[in-house]
Amino acid sequence: MPLYDLHTHSTASDGAYSPSELVRQAAAAGVNVLALTDHDSTAGLDEAETAALEAGIQLIPGVEISVTWADKTIHIVGLRIDRHCNVLKQGLSRLQATRLERAQEIGRRLYRHGVPGTFEAAREMAGEGMITRTHFARHLVELGLAGSMKDVFERFLTRGKPGYVSTRWAEMADAIAWIREAGGGAVLAHPQRYKLTASWMRRLIGEFKECGGEALEVVSGTASPSETQSSAEYARRFELCASSGSDFHSPETAWVKLGRLPPLPSDLTPVWTHWNH
């Protein structure tokens, strides 16, 4: 049976591996079908597709779109997208501009907090990819201002901390429309990570489905067994397909590995069931 990993990141956003290296690492881990789903960017897909042909695995073109819903940041993965679709390209372009503005403001706020040069360092670290909070976090760890990436976010980059910048992302209906216009299917990423009450979770998933959402990411690299079980229950309740993805970013996160995922519950319909390979 093919091994699927439908949620990963490369240096085109905040991943540690280049698109081609990510593909090679996934193939070495036994992954047969890999989706590259960088944050608000499809820039790594050409390189990843070339590497996938060389490695003998299937590359699913994807993206992870940032959405603001009920004042929370929600992530929606688009799978099997046409990255050349103008509607999708225009939407992502607006989000990329928002990301740059946020990065510049994070740099200004950290400067006022007594830490100069963070925007410039993050920009250099990002290279041709987008500047993300992960790049700021890595730089602050290098400066010795925190012991780990998690520590950086808790001390500098979350709400109420010196480098936090409130950001308005895409509307859910718009993000799903971009994905569908590009011929893809929309997946609600890692639903348990949003720390919503049961009633708010039902509202989120209900609106996601009403807008044309197709699947829940039931199995995720960061989910506990109980969280996976809860996501599976929501997939059943709302009659949504199920997806599986590690959300791999970096080997530094030892507990999130490419392809190291438990199987989907057997009674759920995998999102790939109707794909024509």
Rank of each mutant, 00 (worst) to 15 (best):
R133S: 05
H84L: 11
Y234P: 05
A28R: 15
Y17T: 02
K72D: 08
R80G: 09
E64H: 09
H139R: 05
F156P: 03
G44I: 01
T50A: 14
E227C: 05
V63P: 09
P262M: 07
L264P: 07
L143G: 04
E105S: 14
S243N: 11
A103Q: 07
Q104F: 06
E207I: 00
R99C: 06
K209I: 00
E210I: 06
A173H: 13
S41I: 07
K195E: 08
R108F: 14
A126E: 01
G147R: 15
L88R: 08
W200L: 12
A12T: 05
M1I: 12
P19T: 04
G144S: 12
P162A: 08
T37P: 13
N86P: 07
P263E: 01
R138I: 03
R236E: 02
G184C: 13
G221W: 12
I176M: 02
S231I: 03
A137L: 04
T98F: 13
H274S: 13
T73W: 05
R159L: 00
R193D: 01
L196I: 00
L53I: 04
L53K: 14
D267V: 01
G163V: 02
R202N: 12
H39Q: 14
E233H: 06
L45V: 05
R180M: 00
S230Q: 15
H113W: 12
A242R: 13
S93P: 01
F248M: 02
I60L: 07
F119H: 13
T228A: 08
A97R: 12
A103M: 10
A215G: 07
I65K: 11
L79K: 03
A235M: 10
G213C: 06
E64W: 14
H249G: 06
T134E: 09
L157A: 11
R109S: 05
R138H: 14
A215H: 11
E142Y: 05
H84P: 00
R83P: 11
S41V: 10
V63A: 02
P116L: 01
T118E: 11
I205Q: 00
V219W: 09
M125K: 15
E142Q: 15
D151A: 14
S243M: 15
P265A: 04
G184I: 05
G107M: 03
K161S: 00
Y4D: 06
D5R: 03
